[in-house]
Design a protein around this nucleic acid. Structure first.
Lengths: 269, 269
DNA sequence: GACGCACTGAAACATTCGGTGACAAAAAAG
DNA sequence: CTTTTTTGTCACCGAATGTTTCAGTGCGTC
């Protein structure tokens, strides 16, 4: 394992990308200034820290302590990306996120406090483009911002419609906002919260073996206890709902001594 | 209640986990060792305590009493995470943290004295990934380490599944993503994890004689024991599933004194 | 607040997987 | 031909996984 190398290379890629696209976009006549990031967090300390850091790295920034200030900021400036705290006075981050998504497609990165009962997955469910658990490394936030900007910037200029929340795999249609599965025949299969989180996590990493530790972290944000079988139980419950023959699972395969893999290819609708 | 027993079993679980994932990841082409943690603290007592504890839980460790020793350690070993005390003789933890960040992105967990609210902000500002107030519970540190490693471990960027590959040989179609074999008639033959790994290895080296040593290394990432027959057993089990007549194997031939060969020509679909 | 209901994780039990040893069979060696 | 080495395969066991049950919890309704 060598996180250093990969991260460093990643930075370099981002850097090159910005140079390249910056130039080409300008040629195309669409003036692209340095991106403007809006930080929405009620903690002054964090806002200032993040703003300073991002400015050092060539972004323009603004900050807002709550939802109202955020709306004012959006009215006054052209904002390219929002870093949105989950816990806010007044409307909370999820509400704001959903509202934003309803009318615009400004990229959103959610900040969630580790161990909060609110799960990070909800952020993605509400249409956030990425999430980051607190406490976080500013470098990591920077990397996420660049990554999200790269993803969204390359899209055509036409306003992208509100984020799709329907995913198709195998014979199933998975409606993320409604938290339910639909068969080809239109039969609706409701999922519990745990099953939903698990399935969403699998869908976000198709074809990759996920260990029980990773699954626990990604679905619950906590560590596995010594004899923790809860992931196994949830997988079993999920299989009973989505597998044709739960005894011979096709969708979620077991990797002996390793974890589980989600095998179908996923398609956005 | 017998905490000792559970702790010992837990250690074993961790150990097995690392072995297992090491193996499976290697198949996917990405080697992952047990993580190496560097403790930087001027108190010998604390260093030793923490090192012992982490080793019991399957990590490799080193320690350094100050910044210079830390730099030497980093030069000599490949380190995956640093536990860094804030108060150090010579350069203090914040300085070291900033220096480290300037040139690498090894994850850092800061140890701070209790009671200073700003420590956290400062630590994060300097680029630490997490912090922990002294005195701390070793288990808590363990949890943070695992959590930070998980966060920094580059999990595959959201949804880029490995390219779907199905391979045809003899009368079989081998679906690597679905981890199963299909006959000409469309009958699905499920493979166990071990059989899958073995067959995958053979298919990646068609026409080459693979020794038991090589097979063990390629499938499990470990060495063969003196009287290890596990490869033979797995080959036998695999033959029973894929050979028309397991007594007269056509697909996987034995090379007496050498190992096994996968004889069919493989075709990518 | 009482009640019913769904959800979840721990525990208990059932099943499967993979390595080990034993023994038979096959191949090489003498 | 016999002996030795190597390989095939089976039965078995411990460990990992699958599944059910059960009790605790939260939530909505009355």
């Amino acid at each position: 394992m060598s996180p250093n190398v990969s991260v460093r290379r990643y930075d370099k890629l981002c850097h090159n990308f910005f140079n390249a696209t910056g130039g080409s976009l300008r040629i195309l006549g669409r003036m692209k200034n340095t991106p403007h990031i809006l930080i929405v967090d009620d903690s002054n300390e964090i806002s200032e820290l993040v703003e300073r850091f991002l400015r050092q790295h060539g972004f323009r920034t603004s900050s807002a302590p709550d939802g109202n200030a955020m709306r004012r900021a959006l009215a006054n400036h052209q904002v390219d990306l929002i870093v949105l705290d989950l816990m806010l006075p007044g409307d909370d981050g999820l509400v704001l996120c959903r509202d934003l998504r309803a009318k615009s497609s400004i990229p959103i990165i959610m900040l969630t406090a580790m161990g909060e009962e609110t799960d990070r997955i909800i952020g993605l469910e509400m249409g956030a483009d990425d999430y980051l658990a607190k406490p976080f490394n500013p470098r990591e936030l920077l990397a996420r911002i660049k990554s999200v900007l790269r993803r969204t910037e390359t899209l055509p200029e036409t306003r992208h419609p509100p984020k799709e929340t329907t995913i198709v795999f195998n014979l199933w249609t998975f409606d993320i906002t409604k938290r339910q599965l639909i068969t080809e025949d239109g039969v609706i299969v409701p999922l519990s919260t745990g099953e939903f989180r698990l399935l969403l996590t699998f869908i976000q990493h198709p074809g990759h073996v996920l260990s029980r530790d990773q699954l626990m972290d990604l679905t619950q944000g906590r560590d596995t206890e010594p004899f923790d079988r809860s992931i196994d139980t949830q997988v079993s419950r999920l299989r009973k709902k989505i597998e044709l023959d739960p005894k011979q699972p096709e969708i979620i395969k077991t990797v002996w001594g390793g974890g589980y893999v989600f095998t179908p290819t996923v398609r956005n609708e």
